[in-house]
Design a protein around this nucleic acid. Structure first.
Length: 426
RNA sequence: GGACAGGUGGCCGAGUGGUUUAAGGCGCACGCCUGGAAAGUGUGUAUACGCUAAUCCCGUAUCGGGGGUUCGAAUCCCCCCCUGUCCGCCA
């Protein structure tokens, strides 16, 4: 959501920012609505003022037993115009808000311009990618050969884009989640949260899933939405709140299932568990002051990277160009893990600074100590990490071609009861 | 899911159509008093929009949310949401 006052102040700058997002100039249409609305409000408020004053007089006259019918007629005469203005004000406000809510966030100035992922820029690489001399199979093949991963059974039970795991792999998934949560809570200072997984319209609007991305979501028969990421409930913790700035930054983490229709992804990643309707993810969310968000963004990205370092998985971090960044993003770093089975890096985490974009939609504000005025908080979210994709990365990077087994990364052994290796079931 | 009772400022709480500009209390902030503190005492203490140099002043809106009746609504009517208690169901 954008600040109409800021657009009023510098319409050209706003159009320029939208142009980087491939959005045509919007300020003229927005300001026209805004101007008309304010003139309607000015007239309406002056009529309300008159009405209030005269009604008070009527009260005083009647209190003394006098006749106020002349004044009452006068106020009655204002009514039709007032109703008209109220209606107009409402309509204009709605169109203005709808228009503002449909536009993506402005991007940071230091972000590379670009049309798609081809123009993303690599910032750093950590770890040595294992070249595929050993002919590492795809994770789905590894999993099925282990006898612990079945897309067929999942398809029978549910349909396409689901997977069922058992034994060692089911436990490995749980171990990964535990390990990530423990690291974030004990080393990175995040507060663990167990949030609702079904949320209402307002919440989905707050983080920007609605109204534009409705077709990507699952909805219950009651009208609740299944969260597509824990970012949604975690960020909305501060919705409609005014928080003291001393208490910022606030850092939340949660381990939840995520549900996505993958509506626009037909034909993409149909094999394996890269892209599913349901997957587990450990999410990080930070709420900060405007001054803190840039540093917090770096910090959060490092927290995500730290998980991969501990798991000794090779990765690279990239900054998304203007054409590839998400709707609410001010700046986004993606972390991509090396998958030997695919012979390339694949997204495993996305860390975004949403500046005040979500805060405006949620009406989430903060107040500097001792000051009267409030301002909007900044919100950030990042995967820390996508558990399913991390499991894939472990399978492919720790695969042992000698016996088709998978070694357990040292960091996970305590969570796997000391197990060294997952071996195929006989 | 059903029945009943509720939802008023940071908190408690009065208020069933008009001097309510939401009483009063608590808390908080600042001052007075004091050697210092407590007690006492005075003042202030929501958010948004508009106007504006301004966080002053002024205007408007907001008493869970939305709509309606009325010259005038915290108060009356309708719909919805939430909380509590009891019943039912359930892990």
């Amino acid at each position: 959501m954008h600040d109409i006052k800021a657009i009023r102040q510098d319409p050209a700058a706003f159009d320029k920012a939208m142009a980087r997002r491939k959005v045509s100039p919007q300020s003229a249409a927005l300001l026209k609505l805004d101007e008309e609305r304010r003139s309607v409000q000015t007239e309406l408020q002056s009529l309300q003022s008159t009405r209030n004053e005269k009604s008070k007089e009527i009260g005083a006259i009647k209190g003394k037993g006098g006749d106020a019918s002349a004044l009452m007629d006068e106020v009655s005469a204002l009514k039709s115009r007032m109703t008209e203005l109220e209606e107009r004000d409402r309509t204009l406000g709605e169109s203005l808000n709808q228009h503002l809510a449909s536009l993506p966030n402005v991007q940071a100035l230091d972000i590379p311009d670009g049309d798609d992922e081809e123009q993303n820029v690599e910032l750093r690489k950590v770890g040595e990618p294992k070249r595929n001399n050993d002919k590492v199979p795809d994770h789905s093949e590894i999993g099925e050969k282990l006898g612990m991963m079945s897309f067929e059974t999942a398809a029978k039970i549910s349909g396409a884009r689901f997977v069922l795991m058992h034994s060692g792999l089911a436990k490995l998934e749980r171990a990964l989640a535990q390990f990530m949560l423990d690291t974030h809570t004990t080393e990175h200072g995040y507060t663990e949260v167990s949030p609702p997984l079904l949320v209402n319209d307002k919440t989905m609007f707050g983080t920007g899933q609605l109204p534009k991305f409705e077709e990507d979501q699952f909805r219950t028969t009651r009208g609740d939405w299944l969260i597509p990421t824990a970012e949604v409930p975690l960020t909305n913790i501060v919705a409609d709140e005014i928080v003291e700035e001393e208490t910022l930054p606030r850092r939340y983490t949660a381990f939840t299932p995520c549900f996505r229709q993958e509506a626009g992804a037909a034909g993409k990643d149909t094999k394996g568990m890269i892209r599913q309707h349901q997957f587990y993810k450990v999410e990080m969310v930070s709420v900060t002051t405007p001054e803190q968000s840039e540093a917090e963004h770096q910090r959060m990205t490092q927290c995500a990277e730290n998980i991969l370092k501990k798991l000794e998985l090779p990765f690279r971090t990239i900054v998304l160009c203007t054409g590839d960044a998400g709707f609410g993003s001010y700046k986004t770093y993606d972390i991509e893990v090396w998958l030997p089975g695919q012979g390339r890096y694949r997204e495993i985490s996305s860390c975004s600074n949403c500046s005040d974009f979500q805060a405006r939609r949620m009406n989430a504000r903060c107040r500097p100590k001792g000051e009267k005025n409030t301002r909007f908080v900044h919100t950030l979210n990042g995967s820390g990490l996508a558990v399913g994709r991390t499991l894939i990365a472990v399978l492919e990077n720790y695969y042992d071609p000698a016996d088709g087994g998978v070694f357990i990364p040292a960091a996970l052994k305590p969570y796997m009861g000391g197990l060294e290796k997952i071996l195929p079931v006989k």
